[in-house]
Design a protein around this nucleic acid. Sequence first.
DNA 1: TTTTTTTGTGCAATCGATATCGGGAACGTT
DNA 2: AACGTTCCCGATATCGATTGCACAAAAAAA
Lengths: 336, 336
Amino acid sequence: METITIKDIAKALNLSTSTVSRAIRGSYEISDATKKLVLDYAEKVNYRPNPIALSLRENKSRSIGIIVPEIANNFFSNAINGAEDVAQKRGYHVMIFQTRESDLKEKACLEHVLSRKLDGVLISLSGSTQDYTYLEHLLKGEFPMVFFDRVPDGVKANKVVANNFQGAFDATEHLIKTGRKRIGHITSPPILSITQERLAGYKAALEKYNIPFNENLVKFMEFDYSIIAETIKKLIKEENPDALFTASDRLALSCYDAIKSLNVKIPEEVAVVGFTNLKVANLLSPSMTTVTQPAFDLGAEAVNILIDNIEGNKRDMAFKKLELPTSLEIRASSKI
Amino acid sequence: METITIKDIAKALNLSTSTVSRAIRGSYEISDATKKLVLDYAEKVNYRPNPIALSLRENKSRSIGIIVPEIANNFFSNAINGAEDVAQKRGYHVMIFQTRESDLKEKACLEHVLSRKLDGVLISLSGSTQDYTYLEHLLKGEFPMVFFDRVPDGVKANKVVANNFQGAFDATEHLIKTGRKRIGHITSPPILSITQERLAGYKAALEKYNIPFNENLVKFMEFDYSIIAETIKKLIKEENPDALFTASDRLALSCYDAIKSLNVKIPEEVAVVGFTNLKVANLLSPSMTTVTQPAFDLGAEAVNILIDNIEGNKRDMAFKKLELPTSLEIRASSKI
DNA sequence: TTTTTTTGTGCAATCGATATCGGGAACGTT
DNA sequence: AACGTTCCCGATATCGATTGCACAAAAAAA
């Protein structure tokens, strides 16, 4: 691929590279005649400045990274969608990375983001990230970062999350109001922020209605499918829940799967409420009641904060925490 | 962020940058003593070579691009997953772009891939791409490219696709064998390769069983949701199909939606077979018979070919076309 | 001892674009 | 006539890393 450089233009027009550079950038020091000459020629040969050379010189790339646990997950792909939308509008490019829930891969992704001189990064933590010192180190170095959805507890940083507490509270309250008393909660690993917040919402709703908290009804799941199904089945057999409130797309589906395989009836025997962004929730049988997160907006807002941070004056940039509302969509799986 | 350069090391050790560079690359010309000195120091200060500087020099980036119509689409996110997996194993990084089905955005993405000096690109065409001249121009320039899933007809290039013909044939034959005669086909825009191949498979099955082809039963859909539902409803009312075979995730779901809203029974009145990678197909009500594509493998194989192409000798690289098998998963929506 | 070879390093150019500095020409001012 | 401004533009260093070439010192061969 033949690439045109500023040097080629200079040679062709018998000018110096500096003049060409300035003409292209519209510098006032260049006469209009010369500018026109250069611009016309550049247009003619379809000149495109080499972003790599620019990055090298300016030590920035007008690109941001997005690190998520898994791309093939409706919640994250929607969030990426929102993020990409805003980034593009503001003139940034996006590199997407996935950690596959591994803290090691997460660190490798971050290293890559740094060495590639990306201008900042959006990140949702992996399910196995426990040690935040590396993140704190980066934040101290003032590297622009925004956490979204799965954020590090106790770390001062920009965060964009859904109101997980309220979402879980609403879901649980809804189940209680429809007469359920033994409400199970199938959720993500306890180290994740979202897990704790949702658990807190769940507990708060129980407390409000004077239902004692029973820890046997709460199951923290890793990301291994087969175990999930088994655990849910066991829970149903041993604890006789009359409702299950699950904390993610995957878990909601596994739940449906497990319950159906036991020939237990939803919602008559066990009601189900998911916490998910699946478009198909209403097509499931029975259609599933869900707490819906504004995934797209989460991504969009997070990028806005990130780019503000990149472009803004570091000094007067306080860390921001943004919390977007969830909404409870009531469908058949929690009918009375 | 303080970044260590080769120059810093040189200064600290009283060597020249060239010596440091060679020592780090393990050149034979450097004495073992010096090598050890440099390596130890580099390790100590956590030196990482600046990939941007390398890219500038070598005019390549060890990164590839993936351009898809939409990330938040199960098929594509799975394909990306496979692609990323292989790329990582082979030491490449991945930048993901989405076209949102716009040919203009597609061209912009390609421009970006080129100007960023990515080493190659994987691409699945947008639903509005009609003009292949730009692609052909790139291919002539020997820019490494692999098309997957939605590939340009009549263009000589590397292609990785599912066996769409066979998949569609199997689905249609299955519907015929279960007694259906008026089989509708809801599909993607006619300019896409996958549309034509699936249509051909559908027609071939009809022909084999002596069922006349009725073009009123075939509907080509754009990507606008609302119109899709309306069209399907209209089709059912006017043409009385006893089965619908749909060509994608989105369409399959829209189909379910539309049929349910008409209170038509699946499969008694209308059977449904989808062409999709949705994990939830078995959880729908009734569970949906589908033709499944090996999305992950499609992505993985495509990247393998791409990287072979990037690294291999251009001269003896013939264009490859790889076709992976689909499989028909029979479920309740096509029961007799 | 002298010449040749080997070994280990440094210098400088290079990749593409920009910014600093400074030079030459044209014009105005005393 | 001498000097200062202003306007345009060019030479060059720079970003970080690599590499061909030169070259010195040490080792080997004559």
